[in-house]
Design a protein around this nucleic acid. Structure first.
Lengths: 340, 340
DNA sequence: TTGTAAGCGTTATCAA
DNA sequence: TTGATAACGCTTACAA
């Protein structure tokens, strides 16, 4: 329940002017005699009057809000991305409306709906359906439909069959860089841990993994690819499984830093030394990577940049400027202790 | 710029009814003949009509939005807290409006202002001025003034001289538990790292630190307290300083997990073993703590709980229920490898 | 330089 | 069960 607040009418009455004049000094939208302006300002000050943005937005059809959908605030990667987006938004005069979908499709739909109703001026979309390799058409259509009215920028994802504005890191390249690094260090048996077959981000890395093996005449073994999810728990569990295998890889490419750290911990608790006995690489360069001991070799997605770029592009879209559909950021290989 | 959307009028016209009737089926606020209801529903469906929440909020004075101020999305503790708050909010039918103040007071003021203008129904406040030991009165007044109109719940902070609804972890107790643990393990020389003298959270821990020393007849040495900030960099830097000292502590109480990890890394890079040569304890039990190697002894603030509780209390406040002013959560000591 | 009045897209009060 | 119509708090032609 909101305050029974004072309105422009109250201010106008007290200043013996019309609401129009009050509005004028509020928005500096037309000349007002200095004396009346000052009188009005004083009264506004005195009552600590704040115009109701709802009413204002209703007439000028601008809310200054950008909706942001992301799958999981407990994976540092996402807070990093929307940290970057937020800084950019602030400069541009927008406020972010952050929505944690908890990777739940129906929650995603609800938020999508709610953000539209709330009249956000644009949408930044991460995770969920835009990373699904077999996204039900109904879910795609929801987004397509919204996009007719509200500009959307997809981050690290896509909507198959429907061109969208997208900003992404070249994850394929990132995985390739890591593979090459491992291979250059003499590893011939390399495993893959984490992610789900259903997600595009996993698929992309897996492709790079396979092709790198092929390109280096190394054999691809299905039992050396152990997916699961994106958590530390997954890394730990899968590494434990690898430990039971008679013949196991000497190096592991992990879906992300969390998985990598789980894998590291499992290996360490079995008495293995990293990187001497086993090399492990992560992805994303979240704070965790450099915090670890040994420090984790990983690939930076430049998460803040990613958020910033997406926001910049979105703002151009809102201004109805032409922007190229796809922006690709180049990842950076960060070689640290866990692989050499 | 928003869509020139279709309105209840368009629906009404097409259905040959009045807007009132459309509104009735939309809100189920009065009986409508089944046939007309169906007719209207069909048209709504067909056009994918979404009522404008702005207009709706304007009349019923409810936005369903809760503003959340927090200092830093790159410290996992805060995303964890608002993760908990968000889940609770969802159940209660509220949407969170997350605002990253980047620990900047003026940004905090701006957001405070913006959230009020946006007519949020309540405010969750973390960091910044509510953790300042000498908060300028102007900043306090800003909050006090807002509080007259909008319910506010402070998380782990307070507004000196102005009773507010607060949810907090007993950080004093938490620090005490850690100290006792270290002392029980035979440590007689214990240092303190991180935080700033200006913040209440640091002060509280420092108090516990000093009193624990006193209670155990251990001497307090000013040069064994090295503050700074809340970052890994700080932990690293201060530990490096400790390393230069002729006589140094055998154990360290750190302001938070980030500082502790920085300290750990500095110690390790100097060839010290943890915990054999030096014991290190953190605070907050962020994901980092259990990810580390060795795993970090720390204190859980039950961050999700904290967010959840705060949201629950806020919602009661919004419903104008009576709620006790102060809710204290008990921290939990988590003894891990870094201290034993 | 200022005021009047018509919107913005809803909901809610009265009558019918 | 329905329909006019007045709010909600603001901006903005259009007039004065």
């Amino acid at each position: 329940m909101l305050l029974e607040s004072i309105t422009v009418y109250d201010i106008a009455r007290e200043a013996n002017v019309s609401v129009a004049t009050v509005s004028r000094v509020l928005n500096d939208t037309a000349p007002v005699r200095t004396s009346t302006r000052q009188k009005i300002m004083a009264i506004i000050e005195k009552h600590n009057f704040q115009p109701n943005v709802l009413a204002r937005s209703l007439v000028n059809k601008k809310t200054g809000m950008i909706g942001v959908l992301f799958p999981d605030s407990s994976n540092m990667f996402f807070p990093e991305v929307f940290g970057g987006a937020e800084r950019a938004a602030q400069k541009l005069g927008y406020t972010l409306f952050l929505c944690n979908t908890f990777s739940d499709c129906s929650r995603e739909s609800e938020y999508l709906n709610s953000l539209c109703e709330r009249q956000v001026e644009g949408l930044l979309f991460m995770g969920g359906r835009i990373n699904s390799r077999h996204c039900p058409d109904a879910l795609v259509q929801e987004v397509v439909h919204i996009q007719k009215k509200i500009p959307i920028v997809l981050i690290n994802g896509s909507l198959p069959g429907h061109p969208c504005h997208r900003v992404k890191t070249d994850e394929y390249l990132g995985a390739q860089l890591l593979m090459q690094h491992l291979i250059d260090h003499g590893h011939r048996r390399i495993g893959f841990i984490g992610g789900t077959a259903e997600t595009t981000t996993t698929f992309e890395k897996l492709q790079a993994y396979k092709r790198s093996l092929l390109a280096n005449s190394l054999s691809y073994r299905q039992d050396w690819v152990r997916l699961g999810d994106f958590s530390m728990a997954c890394g730990r569990k899968q590494m434990d499984q690898f430990m039971m295998m008679p013949e196991r890889p000497t190096a592991f490419l992990c879906m992300n830093d969390y998985v990598a750290i789980g894998a590291m911990k499992a290996a360490i608790s079995r008495g293995l030394r990293i990187p001497e006995d086993v090399a492990i690489a992560g992805f994303d360069d979240t704070q965790l990577a450099s915090a670890m001991n040994p420090e984790l070799t990983t690939v930076s997605q430049h998460s803040e940049q990613l958020g910033r770029q997406a926001m910049l592009i979105l703002s151009k879209l809102i201004q109805k400027e032409k922007v190229k559909k796809l922006t690709v950021l180049e990842p950076t290989l960060l070689i640290r202790q866990s692989t050499q």
